[in-house]
Nucleic acid binder design. Sequence first.
DNA 1: GACCAGGCACATC
DNA 2: GATGTGCATGGT
Length: 221
Amino acid sequence: MASEQLTEIYKILFDTFGPQHWWPGETRFEIITGAILTQNTSWSNVEKAIANLKSAGCLTPQKLNSMDTAQIAELIVPAGYYNIKAKRLKNFLNRLFENHQGRLESLENVGTDQLRQWLLAIKGIGPETADSILLYAFDRPVFVVDTYTARIAARHRLIEPGADYEQLQYLFESNLEQDIQLFNEYHALLVQIGKNYCKPKPKCESCPLNKLPHTINFEFF
DNA sequence: GACCAGGCACATC
DNA sequence: GATGTGCATGGT
């Protein structure tokens, strides 16, 4: 049964790594900004960009919205893809000011499905970024899927290799309690073990999940 | 120097 | 609908 396996995996990960305290970020807007900046980028690089924005006093919707794309790009260089990410931040802000007067609090009243659609309609926000924002900035019970989630689920035979985002999300959401804190911790723990063991060149021999009764199959990768 | 990172949009077939 | 490519810095 998938739910039992998912619960067992969670237990091992939590016992091994402990609470991850996600999302790192002092404000809701910092979390949203980080979610866009971390697209296909290591968090250590994102931290430098966030620090630049903070020390420039730009980490609020109002301040960032008053800057042009080139100015933003300059500050977020360490995060990589800085031109496209500056545009994506502007896309988000443009929509936030058009529809909600630049007030993030105004989004609190929007239903989860509707908020997800609103986010996905912004160019540069895909399913993972949208769901990260929903879970970590707006405390909605949405499971965040990323490349590690896909690899780990496939290696443990929980899903077909090549499964798409929706299928992976359904696997977790339909087999776990709809618990915001559980979803928060689970995704963070998957990233943690992913970074350490579940890379394209995996280190399965020493992986804590290798103790599980079901085997990991390398043939797919 | 190669490989990888907490994706996404767009072109092409 | 599936597959390929550009975007870019910084750590291992």
